[in-house]
Design a protein around this nucleic acid. Sequence first.
RNA 1: GUCCCCAUCGUCUAGUGGCCUAGGACGCCGCCCUUUCAAGGCGAUAACACGGGUUCGACUCCCGUUGGGGACGCCA
Length: 465
Amino acid sequence: MTQIITRFAPSPTGYLHIGSARTALFNWLFAKHHGGKYLLRIEDTDRARSTDDAVCAIIDGLNWLGLIPDEEPIFQFQRAKHHADMALKLLNEGKAYYCYCTPQELEEMREKAKLEGKPQKYDGRWRDRDPKDAPKDIKPVIRLKAPNEGETILYDHVQGLINVANIQLDDMVLLRGDGTPTYMLSVVVDDFDMGITHVIRGDDHLTNTFRQIQLYNAFGWNLPIFGHIPLIHGQDGAKLSKRHGALGVEAYRDMGILPEAMCNYLLRLGWGHGDDEIINMQQAIKWFDFNGIGKSASRLDMAKLFHINHHYIQHKSTEELLILLEDQFKQTDKPLLSHEKDRITIGIEGLKKRAQTLVELAENAWIYRDIRPIKIENEDQLKTIADLKEVFSDLFQHLSSIQEWSHPMLDLELKLFLEQKGLKLGKIGPSLRLILTSKLNAPSIVDVMLALGKEESLLRLGDFI
RNA sequence: GUCCCCAUCGUCUAGUGGCCUAGGACGCCGCCCUUUCAAGGCGAUAACACGGGUUCGACUCCCGUUGGGGACGCCA
């Protein structure tokens, strides 16, 4: 049995698109599931649009998700010479021909076809024409002499059996006028040379596949197995675009999404395994296969992504979370100090259950950083605090006398204090929380005091009496 | 316009002819817990696009309609 080899083949014209990321994930999982190899090929044959930045962005994105290829990436453009030779080979074998059409002619052809209600395609006018008729001033392209009757059949492992009448497919360009190979040619030659056994890619390539099959046939090569996965749409069901929100995976990383949450979410978008929702990568490798892939397009749902992210945050260890937090804070101008880390370590439980993203976690964690004196802008809040000044002064004394700064003790002493004063926590709670954290919404007061420690708690309280 | 694909709660999905009074998850709503915000617990609402067949029996198979999507480049 031959080893299974899959590939992810993005064109480096921008960030790693969220849909592409899922394609990469599926290829990676499929390969791992079958004990095969997953390769990366950068399709940079469009020299005008390909950039090094995009290559970096894509590789960064894949690394972030943990989708590391099993071999060094292949850059398609470096193989252009070989691709061109393969086109020439077909030409010599009479399976391809020179076409001298101008772009204008092609344009007219399409216009005409549209008006007549015919498929928009090249009409093959140079297919059997004598090259002696060739205009001298035009650099010809090489086109495949594709069959113009019968049909091309694809057994797609996701979509099932599909066939297209060859009359619908025109003689595609293999080599451009400037001698560079087109995508269609490069893909087929590379997939063949790389020994790709399974081509898993987006639905948008489905029609290309029929042309590519014709090329495989012209070369006399065996077909790989194809699986075309449905596209990801925006909330409104239309093709995912900028107005639907973030497209690049790096934007999700910047939002504070965990890579494992991203993978889990992407995995469940278009693939299912019974009622399972939270699936780690080990489990996914065990379960992933064509049969779980759905046939219909799915919509991106941020709420669910956030929910899954929340789940993964809850299950991170304190150590891991602290590293992630340090990372978050590196992006601000105040790196995390060691005593701040100590406070956060104590308060982490209260923080993380309130965070759906790392960004939120970091924002919430600010209450445990050095932010004295606490700034409160709201006049009403300041007034309420001022009105309670005596109570807080007494509370300061009360807390100062506590020897054991522990959760049960603080809980007890706070209750005791309120009882003595004949107060409900509702009366002073909001103000106290403001004094300690500057926020109206935060973890419980006892948790906050515990994490801050006695000294800092009293200092913050002292600032307001 | 031509060709191709798709169609279960708002969303992601389970369901492969009888296990379906259609299951789970997210969201939404309600209740409980609660010093706030969360988290958590409990509960509710909610779907087989439509019309024909096939069959003893269709969410499941077939055909059509409608709706949605994709592809029609010397882009990838």
